[in-house]
């Protein structure tokens, strides 16, 4: 009953919003922001995304500009976060350090969610031998430690954006396949899918109009989780020298560069590490809150 009273206003909001593609956005966002962890996640992710856009404008220094006189300088009024081993401004580099990784991982995670989701849903629907064989392949891939395999491929194909995006999205897509397949199977077993089949709808109608609306929540949350995982993976690759290439400012790369001077100039490594971890924590918190909010939204639509 307690739940029912809570859902009252939310329900009314949902009903008054009427039909429309984005009728759920508002109530879901409200639920996310109503939790401290969801609020924290949303703030962190928004902060980082905004930074990607405005950093080039507000960064005080040119990120590649070296200054031999100011090597490993401690934080000062001129350089708020100090300088690195080549005398570059840590603040400017940290602000821009997420640009490459965020853009690449965003793109790669979207690709992963789309291909993984599509393949997973199809396998769930097709079933039979094809499904059986594909799922064993998926199992095999999932058994390999991800980062090691990434390293192997990247060291053969070389780093760079055009090798990284396909590799990252391929490996992450595989776990989306698994999730998508399971979800599709459970939805496909429901009577309304049978009803649509018996009525004689095209499989296109069944997949896109009947099934997808029931799968999008799961895929959305999975995408967010993949994004966070990829951020970590990309930064690790950069740290190991396979990701972003110098002199591009990148958190993983910056942490790697600062490693030798960690005892003398901890600021050069601390700030990029802090930014990277806040983003990843932010994405995780947000994904978690998103999942819960979508669940709450579904339940709200089913009072009693």
């Amino acid at each position: 009953m307690r739940v029912a009273t809570q859902t009252g206003p939310v329900n009314a909001g949902a009903a008054s919003a009427g039909p429309g593609r984005f009728r759920r956005v508002k109530p879901v966002m409200r639920t996310i922001l109503s939790r401290p962890s969801g609020m924290a996640g949303a703030v962190l992710v928004t902060f980082h995304l905004l930074l990607v856009i405005i950093a080039p404008v507000i960064a005080p220094y040119d990120v590649t500009q070296q200054d031999a006189d100011r090597i490993l300088e401690a934080p000062s009024m001129a350089h708020w976060m100090g300088t690195d081993s080549l005398g570059r401004d840590v603040l400017s580099r940290t602000m821009l350090g997420g640009q490459v990784s965020i853009l690449i991982t965003l793109a790669a995670s979207l690709i992963a969610a789309v291909w993984g989701g599509a393949v997973g849903v199809s396998l769930g629907l097709v079933g039979g031998r094809i499904d059986e064989v594909c799922m064993r392949l998926v199992d095999a891939f999932l058994a390999i430690p991800g980062l090691l395999f990434l390293l192997l491929i990247v060291s053969f194909a070389g780093g760079g954006v055009f090798a990284l995006i396909p590799t990252l999205s391929f490996f992450n897509g595989i776990s989306v396949v698994r999730i998508g397949r399971g979800a599709a199977q459970s939805v496909a077993a429901r009577d309304f899918i049978t009803a649509a089949r018996v009525r004689g709808h095209h499989s296109r109608f069944i997949i896109f109009r009947e099934m997808l609306p029931n799968l999008q929540d799961i895929l959305l949350v999975e995408w967010a989780m993949r994004w966070s995982w990829m951020m970590l993976a990309f930064s690790s690759l950069s740290f190991l020298g396979f990701g972003a290439s110098p002199p591009t400012p990148d958190w993983g790369l910056m942490i790697s560069d600062s490693r030798e001077f960690l005892t003398v100039a901890p600021w050069a490594g601390f700030w990029p590490a802090l930014f990277l971890s806040t983003l990843i924590i932010g994405i995780n918190l947000f994904a978690d809150a998103l999942g819960k909010a979508l669940y709450v939204d579904r339940e709200n639509r089913a009072p009693g």
């Binding site: 309304f192 609306p213 029931n214």
Partner: peptide
């Protein structure tokens, strides 16, 4: 045409 036993499962909750 079919009418199903369980109305919870026979109507798409998202429509």
């Amino acid at each position: 045409q079919l009418v199903f036993q369980n109305p919870d499962s026979s109507l798409n909750p998202r429509k």
